[in-house]
Design a protein around this nucleic acid. Structure first.
Lengths: 145, 145
DNA sequence: TGAATAAAGTTTCTATGGAAACTATAAAGG
DNA sequence: CCTTTATAGTTTCCATAGAAACTTTATTCA
């Protein structure tokens, strides 16, 4: 019987493995919409937040600021988001989604969600609650480090 | 109260988010040993399997064969693994770890495991069992798709 | 008031990973 | 036995992401 240390290591291994698989599969879906996973996540955040700046995106998504900058540039070039300069602080860029961006994000999100439902199709309600609870606990521990 | 569909979507989202975070943080650790995450995973698999071919690695790790090929080339160049041609089938390359490779893998694995234990330091035994069980169930559903 | 420091974001450099095309070898079939 | 098809792995192309250096703007401090 494995001890506690081995079990914790096993948990992290499974999270990495499942995460990597979902990442890669999700990437194939977002690619159909001309976006990488990270680009989609950024667009999604901008849509959800209505207006946001890059520092906030870096903080919340834990992406590299150089990459966020490049993603913002590309999304703007594709006319999915608008960039304006903050009146109070010229260093800040204020980001918001265009209608085109919101529409694309909606479609992409629907496809991703469809995939999610396929994956967990036969998960019981009991297992759902259990899983959500476990993941919340784990997430809290990991992100506070 | 969220319905079942929203909850399933939430589970996948959390898995992606946690996985991405662990991936990135793990990458910083493996980088200290001159390896990317995927390179480490391949080396680890070769050490654990003693001898293996690339097709098997591709099948088990779900990595792109072009990338596995490149990783194998690099690990060989760094003298971490040996490559030989199968006597029965010249198409097959038989991979095995060198002592240097096994040692590096051991050290890197120890660092990664240390990090894993830090993350889940205060996870109770009950939560450990629950998490392991949930992740096993989810993994089985996702990988069978 | 001006110099020093900090902050927000951009650019450059480099290695990596996925997709597609390619090569050499093995298996199948007529 | 030879041609066709399949298989295992390699190479090329290209876009991306992280790290470090850089630029512009704001804040702090003497």
């Amino acid at each position: 019987m494995k001890n506690e240390i081995d079990k914790k290591i096993m948990i992290v291994r499974k999270l990495l493995q499942i995460g990597a698989y979902l990442q890669k599969t999700g990437a194939r879906v977002t690619k159909e919409y001309g976006l990488t996973q990270q680009q989609f996540v950024v667009l999604n955040e901008i849509v959800e937040k209505k207006t946001v700046n890059q520092k906030q995106l870096v903080g919340e998504l834990l992406f590299e600021k150089s990459n966020v900058s490049k993603i913002v540039k590309k999304l703007n070039h594709s006319e999915l988001i608008d960039i304006s300069i903050s009146k109070g602080d010229a260093r800040l860029t204020i980001l918001s989604a265009t209608k085109k961006g919101a529409d694309l994000r909606r479609k992409c999100l629907d496809s991703l969600n469809e995939l999610s439902l396929e994956w967990l199709d036969s998960l019981s309600e009991y297992e759902i609650e259990k899983s959500l609870n476990s993941l919340s606990v784990i997430r809290q521990l990991i992100f506070k480090s």
